[in-house]
Design a protein around this nucleic acid. Sequence first.
DNA 1: GCCATATGGAAAG
DNA 2: TTTCCCTATGGCA
Length: 269
Amino acid sequence: MPEGHTIHRLAGELSLVFGGRTVDVSSPQGRFAAGAAVVSGSVLSGAQAYGKHLFIGFAGRRWVHVHLGLYGKFDVLDRPAPEGPVRGEVRMRLRVPGAHADLRGPTRCEVVGDAEVAAVAARLGPDPLRGDDPGPALQRIGRSRAPIGVLLMDQAVVAGVGNVYRAEALFRAGIDPARPGASVPEPVLRSIWADLVGLMEQGVRSGRIDTVRPEHEPEAMGRPPRVDDHGGEVYVYRRSGQPCLVCGTPVAAGRTAARNLFWCPNCQH
DNA sequence: GCCATATGGAAAG
DNA sequence: TTTCCCTATGGCA
């Protein structure tokens, strides 16, 4: 479930569990064997998140740069690594007495230096989860003819927003994803930013994406709760054809830039 | 078993 | 705009 909130949450968990400790790093699958050897046995200083990029810091100014991509997973477990054969394709395993973490299916997992961390941070737009100034994002969107739905997913514009937060923030703002960025009034852009900050901070705390306002929650509407793969309750994401939680109109679906897009044609303009 | 699918992004055409 | 990569899972023979 890798949108920015997942990565920031992981950074916190990794820092808490492994920070200040000497960590054994391995690659049961083998594809990260060389990198693991570089950092294994050194002290893990802490982890940092920039958008969807995770940097795990080790003594000697070395970082393991991890990007989960579409289906990567990084499980941090408060118990010793199990004995015996490793289940599945574990690219990287972190291990200390009493805890371990397994990384599977990442798009990227490599040892880098400070320069690479800085380069990644520099090419990303402001991150709602880092307390960044939204100015550059607002300006870029305000000048662009590209659809607001595309701009919000562009990591160079806003870092950390993925397909779920994109769809949900636009629904909550009542904005049609196809609208050109420049056509969205600046105050609306500001409120979308503030909304993303609140939603994503909540996501970091809960480890899931919940976007439905109290007045539209299942208990309030007399319908059964619904939990999707992302773990939470949402208005439109992956609800195509089902009635909009606010107006009952069937939720629309489309594909833009090879990604699924969902919106309510009645509530969003 | 096979196929489709997924919250991403980079490279190729 | 399409293709490719990385992995697990659920539906369907």
